[in-house]
């Protein structure tokens, strides 16, 4: 399976982080299924035209986060179950960070809180149904 996406090279986001973000998005949106094997480091690196060490670093961080797991001798896979590696405090912090970003955006757009909440619920339902539909396959 190829994981080609468009890197933004002249970006303020480091390349390895872009790869991480893309893999995470792919998992959430279903392009990467649970338990699916990711391309080898070198293969992905050559298709993205980046240093293999950069890809390796992205993989390693995702493994550390628990999104990916490495099976020795075979390769790197999407973890079957998302294991919680982080402590509760860490999970809370990360959530707060994401929420803060969302709320900043809403304030700038001058959207009242109830509308934000209803939008949140709507999106949650859509994503859940997507995950469920994939699980059924």
């Amino acid at each position: 399976m190829s994981l080609v996406f468009s890197l933004s090279p002249a970006s303020d986001v480091p390349i390895y982080r872009q790869i991480i973000q893309h893999i995470r998005r792919s998992v959430i949106q279903g392009q990467l299924e649970l338990g699916e094997q990711l391309p080898a480091v070198r293969v992905l690196a050559e298709s993205l035209v980046v240093n293999p060490n950069t890809v390796a670093r992205a993989y390693q961080e995702l493994i550390r986060d628990g999104l990916l797991e490495s099976r020795s001798g075979v390769g790197v896979f999407v973890a079957e179950e998302s294991r919680q590696i982080f402590s509760d405090a860490e999970r809370k912090r990360r959530l707060e960070h994401a929420v803060e970003q969302l709320l900043h955006e809403a304030l700038l757009l001058d959207i009242p809180l109830p509308d934000v909440c209803s939008s949140l619920e709507e999106q949650w339902k859509i994503l859940q149904s997507q995950i469920n539909s994939r699980r059924k396959k």
Partner: peptide
């Protein structure tokens, strides 16, 4: 000046 010592490179071999 930004100087960093070289560490041994660790590479994931898939």
């Amino acid at each position: 000046e930004i100087f960093e010592k070289k560490s041994s490179t660790a590479e994931l071999v898939s």
